[in-house]
């Protein structure tokens, strides 16, 4: 028996919208830790890791140990679009051996209650071990600013070079029409803490990434006012959006390397 009640149902809607362009189908894992997912895009260039901690749910019951639920994200997205932004979402499943999951949407006033049953799928997914890494640079900046930069640069080029030095974080691209460089300096003298750009650098780092993936990651912008970009040479970049009081969504992107 699995029963998860999420008062802020819009969080789940936003999470799925941020994943569905990159992930076709995935196993959602339910354990005492929380509701989680790890999935790669079909090219195995990006990896997505989601955690919604159990204590962030109003009610969290998961009796069957680790219980994977395979879902096609396009179908899940269709169903979650039927939930109102203010709705409370309850996820119910009977446990291993049952091939459906039920989503119940309650309006805040309890006047409208809807349930949608969706078929589960068997998904043969590979789970990767993500080692704890020491990052050469960790940058926290407004998520809307990061989204804007990725969008702007993708009208010029296909790849972005992200460099962190003591001057700041620099995003550079080049294409047929020319080049672009955007530098964001550390800025902690802001009225609101979420508007700050904070750079923690152990050593300078510079890596090249496909902009198409970065742009997909920014679909998670509605989840958080800030984004954290963690870089190490010879490691995938980690782009993390914290999910208020509940957990995170992390996007790992393998760098482009010199031939």
């Amino acid at each position: 028996m699995l029963e998860l009640r999420l008062v802020q149902g819009s969080l789940l809607k936003k999470v799925i919208e941020s994943l569905k362009d990159l992930v076709n189908d995935a196993n959602f894992d339910c354990s005492s830790t929380g509701f989680s997912l790890q999935a790669m895009d079909s090219s195995h260039v990006a990896l997505m890791s989601l955690l919604l901690r159990s204590d962030g749910f109003e009610h969290y019951r998961c009796d069957h140990g680790n219980f994977p639920m395979g879902m096609k994200l396009e179908n899940l997205s269709k169903i979650l679009k039927c939930a109102g932004n203010d709705d409370i979402i309850t996820i119910k499943a009977d446990g291993p051996g049952n091939d459906t999951v039920t989503f119940m949407f309650e309006s805040p006033s309890q006047e409208k209650i809807a349930d949608y049953e969706m078929k589960l799928m068997d998904i043969d997914s590979e789970h990767l071990g993500i080692p704890e890494a020491e990052f050469h640079a960790i940058v926290r900046m407004p998520s809307s600013e990061f989204a804007r930069i990725c969008k702007d640069l993708s009208s010029i080029g296909d790849t972005v070079v992200i460099s962190v030095t003591k001057e700041g974080i620099k995003f550079s691209t080049k294409g047929d029409i020319g080049t672009a460089n955007v530098v964001c300096r550390q800025n902690t003298t802001v009225d609101k803490p979420e508007d700050a750009t904070i750079i923690e650098m152990q050593q300078p780092v510079s890596l090249t990434f496909a902009l198409r993936y970065m742009n997909s990651f920014t679909k998670a912008t509605p989840l958080s006012n800030t984004v954290t970009i963690s870089l190490s040479s010879d490691l995938p970049v980690v782009v993390e959006y914290k999910i208020a009081e509940m957990g995170y969504i992390r996007f790992y992107l393998a760098p482009k390397i010199e031939e």
Partner: peptide
């Protein structure tokens, strides 16, 4: 010339 690496080049299967 830049080549795209893959996640499996860095993380291994559990």
């Amino acid at each position: 010339k830049c080549l795209q690496s893959r996640i499996m080049d860095y993380f291994s299967r559990e």
